[in-house]
């Protein structure tokens, strides 16, 4: 489980941002792609541990799960396949051009002034 490492990286960035803007961080919004290698439940659990005793101890983690979006280089169509079957359902081209789904992004913070 590397979600604790991920949560600690997040914490560092959040504390940096919070120091810049002042106020209390109420919520943290992140985007986690299905192909990022990060499990959302494990990340939520890890976040609760990581935030403890810090200035952002009250910050709720809000996760937006980003589905896989793939463009087929064969027929040009875009589709959202399961990560266990990444091929074009239209023409079965076994190639892929991943447009989204790998995100591991700290999107925004909600701060009380």
């Amino acid at each position: 489980m590397h979600e604790l490492s991920i949560a600690l990286s997040m914490l560092e960035q959040i504390e940096e941002e919070a120091a810049k803007h002042g106020g209390t961080v109420r919520a943290v919004q992140v985007k986690i792609g299905v192909l990022s290698g990060v499990d959302c439940d494990a990340l939520t659990f890890a976040w609760e541990i990581a935030r403890e005793g810090t200035d952002v101890a009250g910050a709720q983690l809000e996760i937006e799960r980003v589905p896989l979006l793939v463009r087929c280089p064969g027929c040009g169509s875009t589709h959202t396949p399961e990560i266990q079957a990444i091929y074009c359902p239209e023409c079965i081209t076994p190639e892929q051009d991943i447009l989204s789904g790998r995100e591991l992004e700290l999107t925004s913070l909600e701060i009380d002034s």
């Binding site: 941002e17 109420r26 925004s108 002034s113």
Partner: peptide
């Protein structure tokens, strides 16, 4: 009560590693 501010960050979480 004050409205919370939304601060956009849009940074990769593993930026330092990347």
């Amino acid at each position: 009560t004050t409205q919370p501010r939304l601060v956009e960050v849009r940074a990769r979480i593993l930026k330092e590693n990347d």
